[in-house]
Design a protein around this nucleic acid. Structure first.
Lengths: 185, 185
DNA sequence: CCTGCTAGTTCATTCAATGAACCAACCCGG
DNA sequence: CCGGGTTGGTTCATTGAATGAACTAGCAGG
């Protein structure tokens, strides 16, 4: 599987679950095009230059997941368009964060990169994880990982999953992995 | 190519460029594990359950791009660890946004999802695109797309790229694509 | 009736992911 | 100094997805 969509071993993680929805090749670029205002099959096709079969499959998948909605905007001749749902529009922070990260750390000179400004004030966007209570940006080092609830099913038994359930623990702290029960490293 | 890494047709877009760095299958999950505190080859391996060859290739790639650093933390026996660079740590908002999006829109009941809290105040994180000037979250509809600079090389000629260069334009506004010069739709 | 446009489907080929096996360096215990 | 265990890989046959080209279908307009 190539950038296949399942990550069966990662059932405890929302990020992995998200990647099952949008992590396949081309999918995020299709969503980006939706934000650009692209709505028609043929426009996605000419802009992205991907195989038609892949485009069809991805669009159908995104509709099925509720990220896009396919709707008829004209009856004669029948024409369909793909538009972002509320869920799809809510994906914007992910793309904004990705674009901001690349702009800062992987900018390649000599390319005509588009930029994104806050229209009213013409300021370049940034993207943060945010704490609604403190009302400020939260760096990874201040984030606590909280293991998921105990459920009747069997939890993952690999040493790393076990260590992550031992919590509490913050991001970026080295994880102490104990292979089989004794201390390591 | 399966979630291959190049998107040659998308040279004008920082998001596509970012996906060339981290968009391949497994790569973002490796980064997530780095934030979890995983550092050793064998720990990535047991936790992710991916083929060793893929893990080796992805780690080498991330090091080459400057996202991770491979360093020896012990000489006898020689042991290596992979840690996030400044660039790698700056990727956190992308993962946070992805996790928050999934939590809100694609939560599957019956899974032991980990959650992420701002440790000092125990508040669940959100993620936004942010305007440093207005100091507030910026929804997609308020964002202006600014075409990249004019450069000596040949710009993309597909109708969608042409339409995007006509700007100014906001995200989510339907893009008027003119196939070959006459109005469409 | 003929042409063109949109929105696909089908299919042979290519290339990456998978998974199992193998390998090498090193430590430790006997 | 021999054998077993751990770490950190590499190699390779197999599978399955992406690619790209060809083909199809519905409909409008002339």
């Amino acid at each position: 599987m190539a950038l296949g969509k399942d990550y069966e071993s990662q059932r405890d993680c929302t990020m992995a679950r998200g990647l099952e929805l949008v992590g396949e090749r081309w999918t995020m670029l299709i969503l980006r095009d939706c934000f650009y205002g692209v709505r028609r099959y043929s426009d996605f096709f000419v802009h992205l230059g991907l195989p038609r079969a892949v485009l069809s499959e991805r669009l159908a998948n995104l509709c099925e997941q509720g990220v896009l909605e396919k709707r008829r905007y004209q009856d004669a001749p029948p024409r369909e368009e793909y538009v972002l749902t509320e869920m799809g529009e809510a994906f914007w922070p992910v793309l904004a964060a990705l674009g901001a990260w690349t702009t800062k750390f992987a900018w390649e000179p000599g390319r005509r990169y588009r930029t994104f400004l806050h229209d009213p004030c013409e300021t370049r966007l940034v993207a943060y994880a945010h704490c609604p209570s403190c009302d400020r940006a939260v760096p990874a080092a201040e984030v606590r990982i909280v293991p998921g609830p105990d459920l009747p099913d069997q939890p993952a038994t690999d040493p790393v999953s076990v260590a992550l359930r031992r919590g509490p623990k913050r991001l970026l702290e080295p994880l102490i992995v104990t292979p089989g029960g004794s201390g390591a490293r």
